[in-house]
Every structure is written in C-alpha cells, then in structure tokens.
C-alpha cells in the first residue's frame, strides 16, 4: 500500500516534469499566455471599465460571472458547514 502511494507521487512528478519541458520560461513576455487574450485587459482595461487595478477589472467585469461563482462557493461552504455541524443545537434556529 505504501508503495502505491510512492508510485502515484512519482508518476505525477514525472508527468509534471514532462509537461513543463516546453512551456515558456517563467517571465517570458512573448509566451502564449501573455500574448493572446490578456493584452486587451492591460491595454484597454482602464478605458473600458474605468478601473486602475486590472485584476479588479477582470475579476469584477470581464470575468464577473466567475466571481459570482466564487462567492457562490463561499456561500455554499458556509451553508455546507452549517448543514454538517449544526446538528445538536436543536431549537436554536427557531429561537433566532
């Protein structure tokens, strides 16, 4: 059993090493990640949304729906913990 875990770890590591062989070097301004979609956020984000912080602009406007999902996840987490833990406290909800 112990061996299995080591194998799983090693396989993941190996896959990761192979996968990172031809990704662009960290910090390369010509990498695909930096040239296809994101320049618009940087170059016209201020103009289109009126917000200096590009991260906020993308977070709240361009990809606002993702953020709705993110808040939903947090909300889900709270409700889920409530569902899991608030068992013994009978009647408390009614009194509140």
């Amino acid at each position: 059993m112990k061996l299995l875990h080591l194998v799983a770890t090693a396989v993941t590591g190996l896959l990761l090493i192979v996968g990172s062989l031809d990704l662009a070097e960290t910090g390369d301004p010509a990498a695909p990640a930096a040239t296809h979609v994101s320049p618009r956020y940087i170059e016209s984000g201020l103009e289109e949304t009126g917000v200096e912080n590009m991260v906020t602009a993308v977070l709240a406007d361009y990809r606002g729906f993702d953020t709705l999902g993110e808040v939903t996840v947090i909300f889900t987490g709270a409700i889920a913990v409530l569902l899991i833990l608030r068992n013994g406290l009978k009647g408390e909800e009614d009194e509140a």
Binding site: R63, G69, E70, V73, T76, A80, L83, I84
Partner: peptide, 17 residues
C-alpha cells in the same frame, strides 16, 4: 475555468449532502 468553478460548486454541495 468557469467550468472549474461550477465543478467545485457541484463537488462541495455533494460532499455536504
């Protein structure tokens, strides 16, 4: 990525349920 967010909503709710 939006699919990832929804995938996590699905998983989180399944764990709780």
């Amino acid at each position: 990525f939006n699919a990832y967010v929804f995938l996590e909503i699905t998983s989180l709710t399944s764990y709780a349920l």
